[in-house]
Design a protein around this nucleic acid. Structure first.
Lengths: 344, 344
DNA sequence: ACGCCCATTTAGATCGATCTAAAATCTTTT
DNA sequence: AAAAGATTTTAGATCGATCTAAATGGGCGT
């Protein structure tokens, strides 16, 4: 009984059809839930499929029908929990549309992104959700459109003419600045890191605008290391210049966690004599001490938005380009204090 | 110029062949890098492919060749950073073998797992890497083998007869207990959470064994909530019983972060008058204060192991079942203190 | 009984690659 | 120069579905 029917190839639609005394074409109609087949016939075919243990061969279907029920998702970094949540949202929506996601990691490198993109085409994905690697040329994204391959840009955009799902970073920065200003802070630093892309620039620009619109100095921007473990050790950068900040806004929560630890090491009491606000509002924000005040971006929702954008475009490829940018929300916890207390 | 050649279908191998003045068969051989074709011919065909912008149609190839260059990866939870890292390792190895990963989320639900598994079969994956949902029956996993679908179990195992890539959880628990014992602790609690599966049981069993082998009471096991945000509030559970622990080992770092915060809230000084060791050694361990002492499991490596196991089996399906369990390593930082100090 | 219309069902071509087995070409040997 | 052998190339069948266009069968009006 071990390798009994090892030779016998898989059950095909033709087998099902024969077993149910119908033609291949009718069996095909049953699978696709066509209203054309009679109720009795349908039942017979369905029974046959069950009895024979038939498994639909998507590959064969795709060849003829030009739909693979597959979408490609390309992210620059799987390790970052933020992308994991994003992916979770994408997967959920794609899955509920009866499709599957093919995952790839560009490592934020344009050459790898080229490779990966080609691979996706070879696999005949119906569409792609792409978080473009830093330094991606607009032509790259536009060329994909010329291939008639539906695409949505995720989090970062390089072309105005292609769908985009992201976050209103500028507004998020404004919320952070406004909040700190309401606590009396005027000397606010911005701690950034990582590769430079649209989301990076939007945040910087949002910070600048919010600061100058209040007459604050927007020049206190420091760059911390990309490697998580080295962030705490770079907290001193905040105080290296002549002008010392009383608060810092962080590029994301990874930076926030790191600086929070680093400030602690420098003897600063975050939430008492120094204020810190994060960005992304990851789950850890709630379990650190002091609890992290953070601008929430909601990665799962963003992923869902992106997936829905793509699904819509699959239905109607002629839709004009759309952008859905999610509003951020400031989640106030305990990492900020009024300036009065600070100077006390 | 917009919808100019919209009708014209994709460039096919036949087009390439014609353009290079060879037959379809020869062109096919060139693609597959067969040594049969002459150098001059090969160059001509390759030039033709480049000129026409040919894209390989994996779907068509698969239909004939019974290989999809695709592997399915099913995880119970994408949101958990641990799985994200795991996935990163898998993706890297699979990608470098020229294959792609199809991703799915079972939500730790066996019914969804059934669905997802069927979907994978329909898409004709060459093999599957599965982290079985809690309560998965051994038959489920064994049936997959009967379908001649190569499978490797990830992190959790439900059948001895199927490849497995995971971690030596029991040894990890021993390392944690040994370390705490060396600091003089005898009353050690174990804080667990989440669904129950082999990895869960192995950890519990490892803890028990390590404790009884030293003559310590292995009964101080507490269950904290699964939801991250509610873990800090459950720290009091550690002290609800008559016997109070002086140290706690955590099921994973999510629990560790949460309890660390909760203990702080209760006025305990972790790393001074209470000791805590985590499990997994995630990146955050380095940026929390006190720095978290944690048993490192190395998710990226585990993912790589799993992928390699699958790749090997793809080459030789008749290989006997193998298990590669990674050794853990205790990463000592600052969250534990000698008992002497505690009682001082 | 006949033609007509509706609802079902079907044969056969098709998608774009791979595979087999044989043919064509080029070398070498005798 | 022919035979044998090695190297390249190729025609045509094939994988398992979908699609088109046509066939089948029943019910109904006249």
């Amino acid at each position: 009984m071990p390798s009994d029917d090892r030779k016998k190839s898989r059950v095909t639609l033709l087998d099902v059809a024969r077993h149910a005394n119908v033609s291949r074409a009718t069996a095909s109609l049953v699978i696709r839930k066509s209203p054309l087949v009679g109720a009795e016939t349908r039942a017979r075919v369905e029974a046959a499929m069950r009895e024979l243990g038939y498994v639909y061969n998507m590959g064969a279907a795709r060849l003829r029908a030009e739909r693979s029920h597959t979408v490609g998702v390309i992210v620059p970094n799987l390790t970052n929990p933020f992308f994991a949540e994003l992916l979770s949202g994408i997967e959920a929506v794609i899955d509920s549309a009866g499709m599957v996601v093919i995952l790839a990691n560009s490592g934020d490198l344009v050459e790898r992104q080229d490779m990966v993109m080609r691979r996706m085409r070879e696999h005949g994905v119906d569409g792609v959700i792409l978080c473009p690697a830093a330094d991606t040329a607009p032509e790259f994204v536009e060329r994909i459109g010329e291939w008639n391959l539906p695409l949505v840009q995720l989090l970062r955009h390089v072309s105005k003419d292609v769908d985009y799902a992201g976050v209103d970073y500028a507004a998020g920065m404004r919320q952070a600045v406004d909040y700190l200003a309401s606590l009396g802070h005027r000397k606010i630093a911005f701690a950034v890191h990582g590769p430079i892309h649209s989301a990076y620039l939007e945040r910087i620009e949002g910070f600048r605008e919010a600061m100058v619109s209040r007459g604050f100095d927007p020049g206190m921007i420091i760059r911390v290391p990309y490697q998580t473990a080295r962030i705490p050790g770079s907290a001193h950068l905040l105080f290296d210049k002549a002008e010392k900040p009383t608060a810092v806004i962080c590029f994301n929560d990874v930076v926030a966690l790191g600086l929070s630890a680093g400030l602690h090491d420098l003897g600063r009491e975050v939430g008492e004599n120094f204020s810190l606000v994060g960005f992304d509002d990851v789950a850890e924000a709630e379990v650190m001490r002091p609890r992290l005040t953070s601008v929430s971006t909601g990665p799962v929702t963003i992923g869902e938005n992106a997936a829905r954008l793509l699904l819509d475009r699959l239905i109607d490829p002629m839709l004009p380009p759309r952008r859905v940018v999610k509003e951020t929300q400031l989640h106030i916890r305990q990492s900020c204090a009024p300036l009065a207390v600070t100077t006390l």
